[in-house]
Simulated assay, not measured.
Amino acid sequence: MADNNSFPGENNTGHVWDDNLRELTNPPPRWWMLAFWASVIWWVVYGVLYPMWPVGHESNKGLIGWTQMDEYIKGVDEVEAIRAEFETQIKGMSAAEILVAPGLSQYAVASAKVLYGDNCAPCHGGGGQGGPGYPVLADDDWLYGGTIENIQQTITMGRKGIMTAHGKILSDTEIDSLSKAIEAGDPMSDPNFTQKGCIACHGMDGKGMAVLGSANLTDGIYRFAPAEGESLLDSIKHTIKYGVNDATEPKSREAVMPKFGERLSADDIKKLAVYVHKFGGGQ
């Protein structure tokens, strides 16, 4: 094909397609070559200054002795130095005091974001919206009270409410009648509510008692959402019949929050309490 080069004297390989499309052999532009050799020099210098060349099972240490771990430790030290002032204040303050201190409250929220994500979000959702079988933290319905002190105690000590499996003392007809009254938000309208002892935990008005962690049965907010394919009425019946955390009943609801006081520091719990309170549902 080179013998039939129709562009003699031109720097091409002699390969021509479609009459005039050919492959040239011109050298690269000077700026490109300068950049290429500069990158080669930079690579060699970098390899001398920083760990790069293989030496046995590791790399060389480099002339400046830089390591990624040293860089990380330096960064952590810088962050800790900035946080030290706030952390010192938090040690001597209650969660309630931190909540009303503008600058410190903002720091607590920013600092607790990771704590919440690691310890709370898997159950309660990233924004406190709750999940299947787990309470919402962003509303004003609190089983054990929503004050900053209540929240701090709940995080520290955990919670394990208990409701007896009433299927042992109520007939199916009575459970059905009581469930319908609760679904309507008026549990007092069913005689079983008072006669079978429900008032002992849920109060004469059915609005629950924070000291016991008993639910408000009049507000339409339910600790246990219906399972897939299950109606709200069926879910209420299940809770009444099999109870909550009743060790004698295999079908009992399970509702246990672990004691985070065993894994988190007191200061971290204060910050978490402020963070949860600021979801908007704290009292």
Score class of each variant (00 low, 15 high):
Y116W: 04
E78C: 01
I240R: 04
V256T: 04
L143G: 08
I41P: 03
L137V: 01
T13A: 08
D246M: 07
Q106S: 12
S189Q: 14
V44K: 08
G62H: 06
K196Y: 00
K251N: 15
G92V: 09
C198Y: 02
W66Y: 15
P29N: 10
P54W: 06
I169H: 05
G161V: 15
I169F: 03
E87K: 09
D190H: 06
N11T: 08
P135D: 10
W43M: 12
G56M: 10
H277I: 01
N5M: 00
Y107A: 02
K278F: 06
W17I: 09
Y46N: 14
A210P: 00
L115S: 04
W142L: 08
Q195K: 11
E228G: 01
G128M: 05
W31Q: 14
G261F: 07
H124W: 04
L24T: 13
A110N: 13
T156H: 12
I98Y: 04
G197M: 11
I64G: 15
F279R: 07
L178G: 04
V76Y: 15
D18W: 05
G206D: 04
N245D: 11
D140Q: 13
L178K: 00
G117F: 07
G280S: 04
V244I: 15
V256E: 01
Y242F: 15
A273K: 07
V79G: 04
S39N: 05
I155H: 07
L178Q: 11
R30L: 10
A225S: 10
G208N: 06
H202G: 01
P250M: 13
P187K: 03
A112F: 02
G185L: 09
N12Q: 02
T218D: 00
R263F: 07
I162Q: 08
L34V: 12
E149D: 13
F36V: 06
A266K: 11
Q195V: 10
W66T: 04
Q89H: 10
Q152V: 09
N11A: 13
A35N: 09
G213V: 07
V114Y: 03
A95I: 05
D19S: 11
G125P: 02
E230L: 03
P187L: 02
Y242W: 10
V76I: 14
N119Y: 09
R159V: 14
G14Y: 02
R253E: 14
V40Q: 12
G127W: 11
I151T: 02
P27I: 04
D219T: 02
A81F: 09
A84T: 08
G133W: 04
W42P: 07
A255H: 09
I41N: 02
A266N: 04
P28M: 03
G117Y: 03
K241T: 14
V136N: 00
H57P: 05
M1E: 03
T218G: 03
F86W: 13
Y144H: 14
W42G: 15
